[in-house]
């Protein structure tokens, strides 16, 4: 029986959701292929984390050491490469997260194993694993396979698999010593920094009017603010608007911004990249205004308007004011 490896991602003592999602997928694949699931846990004082994973894997391979207190792609790479060499797992899952995006490519070169990044599904065909992923901002899907190898690395997009438990498992915990690797990591952790909070909290808003790169120029943001004001809603935005310094970071929705839960989310000139939409999963109703009928946002929005925002937004504002008066 061979093992599917899941590299556990945890931060500040908490298991990150991506870990549960990967364990779900690993569990599903393992059942169909009669493999077992191994969670690979690196950190310091991680026994409670191991405990929380004990019904989701068949094995938890634990490296607990002071030097692993903070995530280090350098140390993770060395230790996991050694473990791969020793056990030759056919499939290794890593989160397509900031940390995973640093670790996985290094590990691929180090071990010689091929890598598929940001996968949204894993198919298994005649003993081979095939990655399903997206290109061109989600406008194209691709299936990627690998040349003959002993194993392969997949990074998994957050939010594509359930966080639930799958199957009946009781993990055996295997404590490993810190392998004596005489490497000094080239990067040293200093501290975490939080985004400065602002005068509004978009996570509390009932109605968000969200603006994206389609707005074109900074001065056009006034249009969105006026609409939000008429609706008594709050302005939020996609990342490029923050990157350009047109609106502050605390108004950004998405994986590197905030997750929001309004009753209604109006997305204006936003294409619907998954990093943006990941922040809107908790929205009741999503309304999208975009002039590109093939924009990915129309796949997830509830209502869509395929038109120029500059034609729609001013008229909508007037209609709202009218309705509120009447």
């Amino acid at each position: 029986m061979s093992d599917i490896f899941v590299i556990v991602e945890h931060r500040l003592g908490e298991i990150r959701d991506i870990t549960f999602e990967m364990l779900w997928k690993a569990g599903e694949l393992a059942e169909n292929l009669s493999h077992s699931v191994s969670a690979v846990l690196l950190g310091h004082e991680v026994s409670s984390i191991a405990e929380d994973l004990s019904d989701r894997a068949d094995q938890i391979i634990i490296y607990d050491d002071e030097r692993l207190k903070n995530f280090s792609a350098d140390l993770y790479k060395e230790i996991i490469a050694g473990l791969i060499e020793e056990t030759k797992p056919p499939l290794i899952l890593i989160g397509s997260t900031s940390w995973g995006m640093e670790l996985a490519p290094c590990l691929s070169i180090k071990t010689g194993l091929p890598l598929a990044t940001d996968c949204i599904d894993i198919l298994s065909e005649n003993g081979r694993f095939i990655a399903q992923r997206q290109m061109y901002n989600g406008k194209i899907f691709a299936n990627v396979s690998f040349a003959e190898t002993s194993g392969c690395l997949f990074t998994i997009r957050s939010g594509v698999f359930p966080k639930d438990k799958i199957g009946d498992r009781q993990a055996q915990k295997i404590q490993k010593g810190f392998p004596l690797i005489d490497i000094k990591p080239g990067k040293t952790f200093v501290e975490f920094v939080e985004t400065a909070a602002g005068d509004v909290d978009i996570t509390q808003a009932e109605l968000l009017v969200s603006v994206g790169r389609g707005i074109g120029e900074e001065e056009n943001i006034a249009l969105i603010k006026e609409l939000a004001e008429a609706l008594n809603g709050v302005v939020s935005c996609s990342r490029p608007i923050v990157d350009k310094n047109w609106l502050p970071k605390y108004l950004q929705v998405g994986t590197s911004g905030k997750s929001v839960t309004p009753k209604v989310y109006i997305a204006i000139g936003i294409s619907g990249a998954f990093q943006h939409m990941a922040g809107t999963n908790g929205a009741g109703t999503i309304i999208a205004v975009n002039k590109d009928p093939k924009a990915p946002i129309f796949r997830t929005a509830h209502y869509g308007i395929v038109d120029d925002l500059f034609k729609i937004v001013p008229v909508l504002k007037d209609k709202v004011l009218e309705a509120k008066k009447g």
Partner: peptide, 17 residues
């Protein structure tokens, strides 16, 4: 000295040789 962007608006400051 770099700031790496993590999820949810968190940044990670590191020093790299």
């Amino acid at each position: 000295r770099t700031t790496s962007e993590l999820e949810g608006g968190l940044g990670e400051v590191s020093v790299v040789d």
